[in-house]
Amino acid sequence: MRVFPFSISWLKRKEGICFQLIFLYFIFFSSFFNTTYARDITNEDKIKASYVFNFIRFIDWPLNQRIESSKPIVVCVINKNNQFIKAFSPVVGKEVKGHLLTFRKISEPYDISKCHLLYIDKAEKNLISQLLPKIKKYNILSISDMNAFCSMGGMIGMVTKKGKVKVEINLSVAKAAGFKINSNLLEVATIVSSQ
């Protein structure tokens, strides 16, 4: 059985091939990230950024929140050290579902009313309790790479397990907010419910 190249154990076993595969993945992601990378951007950041981009492709916004065709999809990022914003730079200005992607960094007082998608960095775990009611209020698609994000009431979580980024979805929250998630995405994701 083929092991996903990001498996660390596999990387250790196949060091030679590992280098080649990393190089291939570099080419794969280069379609999304065609600018120079900052030294502090890790592969994981890149993957997570591409995942966020892909989530938009598999998810339909609620009818009452439908984004007008002429307007861009606003991706808001709460990330103090700007590292993740940089990771998004390759997909800035790209079209998804006929909309341009725009990125906006959110900081205090965390006005997210104009956001369609909110990415909360795992370092901002303390803001969850504060942000979740707002998210619910504005029907924003919430994504975070912090552990147990979905359990806490978030919609989509990206959990790194054994060097592999896994997707978790809190389907009930997403459904309640009116989001339609593509069954294909659900197949690759782990369904988590709120605690």
Binding site: V3, F4, I47, N54, N184, E187, V188
Partner: peptide, 14 residues
């Protein structure tokens, strides 16, 4: 079609 998500999220298993 069914493998789009698996490809997008590199889910080899799926």
């Amino acid at each position: 079609e069914r493998s789009t998500a698996a490809l997008a999220f590199m889910d080899t298993l799926q």
